[in-house]
Nucleic acid binder design. Structure first.
Lengths: 236, 236, 236, 236
DNA sequence: AATGAATGAGCCTTCATTCAT
DNA sequence: GATGAATGAAGGCTCATTCAT
């Protein structure tokens, strides 16, 4: 077996096992047995479990991105269409068709419980994707919209998409199976999110005078988002 | 030390460790050491690691719910105010503040990688919460809005809230620390989401004639959401 | 519950558990649970597991001895009859009727894998029993029979009896179930052993000139019986 | 160190420890320490403690059988000589001499408290050995001797031999050390048992008219040998 | 270069024993 | 006097890693 073939088989097997079980619960034995290679191969080719994991992450986000590329837009493509495309592509990449590809699972795992590998993930994959969204939004909102408002708009859109990725198990317990089949296809979800978001964006510059005044109870505590980014070595 | 105190200290410590590391990577040694109890206490009081985990999950979603209750609404409280309250409470429960941040983390872990405990979680905690949201939305939308449209609206709102829970690590890498401090407090996020969502909802009944037509490329494949809910024993 | 009742219930339960599982594999939890007493009772009443074991052994050999007493012999009772009685009683005490009484099991365990308790067992129970056998034999053999010849005769008889006690599992695998039922009752075995032994004893003084000469191969090595009496604390 | 050497050293050490302490009380740590191999070796080579035990049992009854073979008999070898040889070999195999005494101990343990391994033991080792004895006896007794009479004769001989195996600890407490040294060598014991048994066998066909009549007390109860062969997994 | 064998650290669990009430 | 709670010492086993070929 060639060296290249061995490493690629390990990476493929590792991707599935890491995605299914997480870093800690995945065992090198499982991976090597699934890849049908020697137990010592991982350490030989990748050094240790940790570096195999990072290599797996790097290897991971190639497939979905290339499988569902952003369409080539013309000069005259409207920002609404671009947003619709963006949402469609984002959902397609996230929601597995048929069986879940391990790449998606693994990336979601990284985002919720980040390890060292998350930095690379963000830099190479998420950051550009999010910047693309911001550039589309900028064409849709009023000139004077602030950067942080734009960011929040972006998060509102991404948040709606991610919901269907993260919460699939919960989703299936909240909604009838039948309704999922009929009304929650990727296409329909993309339409809904696009529709919902465009409605909000169109009128977004009409800022409320004092939005907090509509709360029924005064807010007594001010919570700041704690920095809990324990971006350490993977252990989960 | 009383039995109750011991178990509660174990639960508190277990919550933090399970939330930080996941089931598999968490060790009873860590938990007992953090709780300052004997290593054998867990087995004495809970039987084994698994049952401690389930007890911890159950224990977890009692605190935030009671800590941030839904305010008592009057008869004349407007649905807009109710929605604002709902979003405020939801965010408060989800985004950890200094004191006891692990409950939220643990529940998110359960939702993304559900174990057997998730069913109880949904029944006792999530389902009622989501039903409350639906009842508020029903007062805001047109009469003829279908059940599945309402559900998607609910998901769009919940999705925006959850985003800030799931993706906190990523968030902190996409946004400047300074901007987070100034513009991403729970209050401000609640305002944004409320504002964004109300704008969309107000105009929601104006259905687009053919929303998919604005896509730049025809959709060729129809993706169904695969059921990948392997609700097994925890191992990650 | 009175103190006496508690200890006696513990002893009864301990006897069964120790007999079934041996010293090490028996757990105080099992014993206390079977006796339906508190977990700490054993240590409270007996000090520790070891002393409970010794107390159990002492408690054990009261029952079978009294249940099958040596019959009262008259002055004119023949030594042959005495031997027949002796064998009958020995077998009766050893071989359980119906379910095995734990006393027998426990004593056999002690004899094969002796602990500290074995000394008491020998002194109070085995030594007198064996001395009785020797006294019977002395009436059956020639005057000039040496002490060690007599001892070996005794062992030959005891050995035949013990065989059916120790090797019951093996016995049942070597012999048809049907044959066991028909021909291996205690009565029949006693008859056989008595018959066999009396035949040998009657002619025993006719010593062979050189018994070792009938061996087909010369004995090259002389093995001495190693003293492996590790009469230590019970640990098995 | 070669694989074979490691496993054989583990087996040797395991044999001694299991023989001394029994399955439950024996610890893998002790075995590995005695064998001077790593603690994890047992699990690597044998899977777990249980499978090591079974492997040890199998390994145990190969050595003595090959160490003390039945001599090659000529056509004209008398059955008396054969019986003498048989008893000599049986005793040699059973009574440990200095070098490797644990095999016998372990096998006796298996016979008294049988585990799953005992079946194989009987089939491969005990059954053929016993059949050999029966074939010898058949040449010594009258033609009309029944199968079950023959079996009991065999048991009487085996029983005498086994006595010195099972009851060595007790033996040493019943007999002076000095007498053991002088009169209880394997050779002497073999002579005695051979002599004793031949005497009985020669006259065996002279059945007693009613052997039970010599009992001083009528037998009131008929005891059947209970089947208490709990051939379970080892736990003692 | 590649692998079967071996290793040591650590984890969950059990259990006899002790403590505090 | 008696007991529920707690403890610490192992024990079996797993697993990433290293060694020797």
């Amino acid at each position: 077996m060639s060296q290249e073939e061995t490493t690629s088989r390990i990476l493929e097997a590792a991707g599935q096992v890491f995605a299914d079980r997480g870093f800690k619960a995945a065992t090198i034995r499982d991976i090597c047995s699934k890849a049908d290679v020697n137990l010592a191969s991982v350490n030989y080719h990748f050094g240790d479990k940790q570096r195999l994991y990072i290599a797996t992450i790097k290897h991971a986000h190639q497939l979905p991105s290339s499988q569902f590329p952003i369409p080539q837009w013309h000069a005259e493509t409207s920002p609404e269409t671009k947003l619709a495309d963006f949402i469609q592509v984002t959902l397609s990449r996230m929601i597995p068709k048929g069986k879940a590809p391990w790449q998606a699972k693994l990336m979601m795992r990284e985002m919720t419980q980040p390890t060292l590998a998350v930095q690379e993930l963000i830099k190479e994959y998420i950051r550009p994707h999010f910047d693309l969204l911001l550039s589309i939004l900028r064409q849709l909102v009023a000139k004077q919209t602030s950067e942080q408002q734009l960011t929040k708009l972006g998060f509102s859109i991404i948040g709606q998409c991610l919901f269907y990725r993260f919460n699939q198990p919960v989703l299936h317990m909240l909604v009838d199976e039948e309704m999922v089949d009929q009304h929650f296809s990727i296409e329909q979800l993309a339409q809904h999110i696009t529709h919902f978001s465009l409605l909000a964006i169109r009128h977004f510059t009409e800022e409320p005078n004092d939005p907090s005044s509509i709360l029924s109870t005064p807010i007594t505590e001010q919570y700041s988002i704690g920095t809990e980014s324990n971006t350490n070595l993977p252990e989960n």
